[in-house]
Simulated assay, not measured.
Amino acid sequence: MGAVGLAAAAALTAASFTSPAAADAGVGHARTQEALDAAVKDGVPGATGQVDDRYSIWTGTSGVGDLKTGAPRSAVDRYRIGSMTKTFVATVLLQLEAEGRLDLDDKVDKWLPGVVEGNGHDGRRISVRQLLNHTSGIFSYTADPDFLERGFTEKFLEHRYDTYTPAQLVGIAMRHEPLFEPGAGWSYSNTNYTLAGMIVEKVSGHSYEDEIGRRIVKPLGLYATSVPRTASSMPKPSSRAYSKLSLAPKPTDPTHDVTELNPSAAGSAGAMVSGSGDLNRFYSALLGGKLLPAQQLKEMKTTVPVSGAGLITGYGLGLMKFEPSCGVSVWGHGGNIQGSASQAVTTPDGKHSLAFNFNGDWAGNSQAVIEAEYCPE
């Protein structure tokens, strides 16, 4: 989820002359390990990641998982994946579309009458598609000044166990004017996916958590993946998660343990927990056509342009397009939440996948890890 969405992703423009073929071949992971190490040198307590390609499974770790004990990061750590939750939610909605139970061009008001209204917001003019690709113009509740203060400053320590309902989160957004007319621009909004989760429940009759479990987690055997509602603790094995709890963090700021938190503040925009192996399995299956029919996967990969986000050049339906410097394209999503910054990407055929996590949210260049893996020379 994160306070500022895509702005948390560091820009990377380093030049490389590696050919796309060489990048796709998965030749070694030395630079990937170096990029994980560089994040730790930059101030992240620890990093963990995994690569699944045509030839092998590689795991890499760096730094510590617990600043008090000095215990290292583990290759099998579970961690909060933040906005990668959006890809799971979008996949469920596209499955429902393939079953004929809704249309991406349905207006939000058809499924959630009267929910998106006030201060210029109008759910009768916004489609489900516009929620999923962030062209709705709906204000992101995580940009609300009061929400920012409670969630991303030291006030978090007083509010970490607060419970939010989806209706409350949408209500926060409705206090603000839209950013633009529906379809007239692009802006990352967590409110879009709060609404998407509500639509999943309205269409299916089950919560988005249950639908993700039934349709994705169980069929793929994602044993490290869970969709917590309000539970604040982390499943084992896992490392501690750390934050500076500042909107403008400095290396000298105090470091806070933020491992325990009530994920309802993120909900269907970013509450899930997973691990690198499970994320690789999920994105590989998704891009490999195992979760969606060809038409729905094509719609998911139909992007709108994104600028100023480093390697990220387009946003589809809960799916980001990354273009490293050597010419290869990869698909996936990033996810930031208090104390946790993660990325997961895979090649268009789903056969070369990378997922990793930093257990600190104020430092480290996550896009440099992607660049290192797919442009290794």
Rank of each mutant, 00 (worst) to 15 (best):
G2T: 02
A9N: 13
A11I: 10
F17H: 14
A22C: 09
A30S: 11
Q33V: 02
E34G: 08
A35M: 05
A35Y: 06
A35G: 02
D37I: 04
V40S: 03
G43F: 12
G49I: 05
V51T: 08
D52H: 15
D53T: 12
S56D: 14
G63P: 05
D66I: 09
K68Y: 08
P72L: 10
P72Q: 03
A75V: 13
I81D: 01
G82E: 03
S83N: 03
T85W: 00
A98I: 06
A98T: 08
A98Y: 09
A98H: 09
E99H: 07
R101K: 15
L102Y: 10
D106R: 13
K107R: 15
L112A: 06
V115Y: 07
G118F: 02
H121V: 10
D122E: 09
V128H: 13
N133Y: 10
T135C: 12
S136V: 13
F147A: 00
G151K: 07
K155G: 00
K155S: 11
F156V: 00
R160C: 00
Y161Q: 12
I172A: 01
H176Q: 12
H176G: 03
G183W: 14
G183M: 01
S187D: 15
N190G: 06
N192M: 06
L195M: 13
G205M: 10
S207T: 14
Y208P: 01
Y208G: 01
E209T: 12
D210F: 09
D210T: 14
E211P: 01
I216M: 05
P219W: 01
G221V: 01
S226L: 11
M234H: 13
A241P: 00
S243P: 08
S246L: 01
S246C: 05
K250C: 03
P251I: 07
P251S: 12
V258C: 00
G270M: 00
S276H: 04
G288Y: 04
K290V: 10
Q295T: 14
L297Y: 15
L297F: 15
T302R: 14
T303D: 15
V306Q: 00
L311M: 10
M320R: 02
E323M: 06
C326D: 13
V330Q: 11
H333R: 11
N336L: 14
Q343N: 13
D349C: 07
H352M: 04
L354T: 04
L354Q: 02
G360M: 03
Q367H: 09
V369D: 06
I370A: 08
E373A: 09
E377A: 15
